[in-house]
Design a protein around this nucleic acid. Structure first.
Length: 257
DNA sequence: GCTCTACCTTT
DNA sequence: AAGGTAGAG
């Protein structure tokens, strides 16, 4: 969602796959243009789970979550476009949000001529030049974008989409084969675009929260691959099959707000 | 299995 | 120092 924009009247605008959506929430009502209702319901994941119900359970379970939920009740995981999600988090490594947005606008502009429209097709992404992307501020991510696009092009048609709904460990195993995609980025793509609701991306903020509140035995340790697994597992034990959703509310409270 | 380091740029 | 990854030791 890095390229989305919010206007003064509360409309959120951006591309999701084939659609260019406008959304606005007023109370319990969501207004929309750019797609039909079933698409919007699917994108917002309105029919998959009762977030209210999950949150009530999590609030009772954990005071830290309760506090975060108080400040940000209703924060949802969205069903994002897998290809845009893949390249977004490939670019996201060690960069603040404002910079990630600029990098993705540059990628889209280079590939399609429109920074805000539909995300480039694989064919369009294959036209990207590393040198151009470096000029546009991608830094060391430029090479990763080019190499990942090539590797993706070797897979069958709609390969990324076909990962949706597969077991999380399998999704992680597939995605971490790509250059520039380690466990954290794989988990972001899995959670935000592939329906892997239990995925808990452990970034620097979630690592700190986990050590402090959920797995004190990790408190003296650093974020190695083995400890990433332990932190993620601690979160999943605590919050259950929708742990990724709980993670996002805590993350937002800690890192964004 | 863990630590250290380089990788680009912006604030 | 920023919402990491990959290679070397």
């Amino acid at each position: 969602m890095f390229r989305w924009q919010l206007d003064e009247e509360g409309w959120c605008m951006g591309a999701v796959g084939e659609h260019v959506l406008r959304l606005r929430q007023q109370g319990r009502l969501v207004e929309f243009t750019g797609a039909d209702e079933s698409f919007v319901r699917s994108f917002l994941r309105l029919d998959d789970l009762s977030l209210t119900e999950q949150a009530r359970r999590w609030c009772a379970l954990d005071p830290l979550f309760a506090k975060a939920w108080e400040g940000q009740s209703g924060l949802r995981i969205l069903r994002q476009d897998p290809q845009e999600c893949f390249f977004s988090f490939l670019c996201a490594a060690v960069a603040p949000i404002a910079r990630i947005r600029k990098m993705l606008e540059a990628v889209c502009d280079e590939a399609t001529g429109d920074p805000f429209g539909q995300f480039p097709t694989l064919e369009q992404l294959l036209t990207l030049r590393e040198s151009r992307l470096r000029e546009r501020g991608l830094g060391f991510r430029a090479e990763r974008v080019v190499l990942a696009a090539r590797k993706l092009a070797e897979k069958p048609e709609s390969w990324l989409e076909s990962l949706r709904g597969r077991p999380l460990v399998e999704i992680e195993a597939e995605l971490t084969q790509f250059p520039g995609i380690g466990r954290k980025i794989a988990d972001c793509i899995a959670l935000f675009s592939l329906d892997a609701d239990s995925a808990v991306p452990v970034d620097t903020h979630i690592w700190r929260i986990t050590k402090t509140h959920y797995a004190p035995e990790l408190s003296a340790l650093s974020l190695t691959p083995a400890n990433y697994e332990r932190a993620s597992a601690a979160f999943q034990r605590k919050f259950g099959p929708y742990a990724g959703w709980a993670q996002q509310t805590l993350f937002y409270q800690q890192a964004v707000k």
